[in-house]
Design a protein around this nucleic acid. Structure first.
Lengths: 173, 173
DNA sequence: CCTGAAACGGACTGATGAGTCCGCTTACGT
DNA sequence: ACGTAAGCGGACTCATCAGTCCGTTTCAGG
């Protein structure tokens, strides 16, 4: 029951690969047909494994978000809480902007995959930096993330570091 | 030929009113059917006046953008070029955020209506403030607008002034 | 092998939305 | 009042996309 037949397993991997590529390229607008075609399977096969398009997106996003969570955890262990947030933001920028399409999927999915976990870690980082006095404290911890996200996604290709810099400067106390 | 029949004129106005409301509420995703229904006409009537949905959007946006252009012109006449940009940005925020949906349409339409004109005025304001030394000069004039737009549209309801403040702080030299 | 369950894939459905067409209606000049 | 051109509106086409179904193929255990 729990074991997948060899062909099924192979197709599943092809689908996930194709989906990752498609979502990275087109964001949440990538269509299932397109993904199935790229994977060399019928789209019925995709739907058998992932009952809805969102389910497929969650699967693709999972490790992406997991990577970000790991970075956030690491930042939480820093012995300079005041700067940990800024370092984290810059490292997050690298990850997010290496595949902006995937990140638009993360936004689209909201809390579903591990978004809530990431959100929570981010809030903690912000609160710490605010207590340390390096981060302006008139924003609620939950408001900082969306602002940074918006700046990153709005940046012209190659300019996101500059945009992030501007926002981080504005966020300093 | 050039004169519209009375009923045609009336319907045209109804359509424009309904379209303004619909676009303000739903952004570019508002559908023609929805607009036609709200205006109390068949959607054929809409398409007769505006061959494509974008044409309708341009018409609706026109005066919205015109208002912003007027504000920009005014700012250009300020005798404090260093602060003119920041004042303008804040006043622009008021206009944009009074109908965020319409502004998403402006973004969608790009240069088509009077976007190019507004863009040009904005660039001039930025360049002046940069010369005056109040605005950081590592951003190109054309890059400032998108960053501000992104921050405004990403703000949670009621919080856009704060977001704008953060970005403007970050933009100061 | 050979058989049955697992997996496949594409035809099909249903929804949505842009844009077209044409028979009917209505304003308005004479 | 009436004839006609301007105007109307909804039925229609066309395309897209998510999700379903089922006849056919293929894997894998005996």
């Amino acid at each position: 029951m729990t074991e997948l037949r060899a062909d099924a397993r192979r197709n599943l991997e092809r689908v996930l690969d194709a989906a990752t590529e498609a979502f990275a390229a087109s964001g949440p607008d990538a269509s299932i047909d397109e993904i199935a075609r790229a994977a060399g399977v019928g789209h019925g096969t995709v739907f058998r494994r992932f009952p809805t398009k969102d389910d497929l997106m969650y699967a693709v996003i999972e490790r992406h978000v997991a990577q970000m969570c790991a970075m956030a955890e690491e930042a939480l262990h820093s012995n300079d809480p005041g700067e940990a947030f800024f370092d984290f933001a810059r490292r997050l920028g690298e990850v997010v902007m290496s595949t902006p399409g995937l990140h638009r999927c993360v936004v689209h999915c909201g809390e579903k995959p591990r978004g809530a976990e990431l959100e929570e870690l981010g809030r903690t980082l912000v609160a710490r930096a605010q207590r340390a006095g390096t981060l302006r404290s008139d924003l609620k911890p939950s408001e900082v993330g969306p602002l940074i996200r918006a700046a990153l996604l709005a940046a012209p290709p190659g300019q996101w570091r500059l945009y992030l810099d501007v926002v981080l400067d504005g966020l300093r106390a």
